[in-house]
């Protein structure tokens, strides 16, 4: 008879840890896009002349974008198509190869810019163009406003 409450408590604990500890994939990918947008925004501000060129800011931004671009595609398991205000298009799952290719191009463009760190405002402007083209290109097909 003492066994039942113990099992119940164990089940509750297991349930809580699985929902509280691990963030849902929808939330992880939204946080990544937000962080990527902020990093990109810091570079765009330099490109537009709103902020002076700052090598440390550029490097940190590119490192954040590199992290996001390499990891982003890992957070679209089956079952995470909707929920948590996800704006993911069903095409991510229908054409997972196309989505992965778009993600890989984003990662490759960021990596190439990071490898030859932009040394001045003109370099940052070029980098913003190269990297930024990936945003709309992917969102055109794989993101849906709800």
């Amino acid at each position: 008879m003492n066994f039942k409450p113990v099992l119940a408590a164990a089940l509750v604990a297991a349930f809580c840890s699985s929902t509280v500890m691990a963030a849902e994939p929808q939330e992880v990918r939204q946080q990544e896009m937000k962080a990527g947008g902020e990093a990109f925004g810091a570079m765009a501000a330099i490109a537009k002349g709103q902020k002076p060129y700052d090598a440390a800011v550029v490097k940190a931004s590119l490192e954040k974008l590199a992290e996001v671009s390499k990891d982003f595609h890992n957070h679209f398991p089956k079952g995470s198509e909707t929920g948590y205000e996800s704006e993911a298009s069903i095409k991510i799952w229908e054409d997972s190869a196309g989505f992965k290719a778009a993600n890989d191009k984003f990662a490759a463009d960021v990596a190439s810019v990071l490898a030859a760190l932009p040394a001045d405002q003109a370099g940052v402007t070029a980098a913003v163009g190269t990297i930024g083209a990936n945003c709309g290109a992917c969102h055109q097909t794989y993101r849906v406003k709800r």
Partner: peptide
């Protein structure tokens, strides 16, 4: 806030 245009 550097979200991008999407869709059509």
């Amino acid at each position: 806030d550097y979200d991008s245009v999407g869709g059509s």
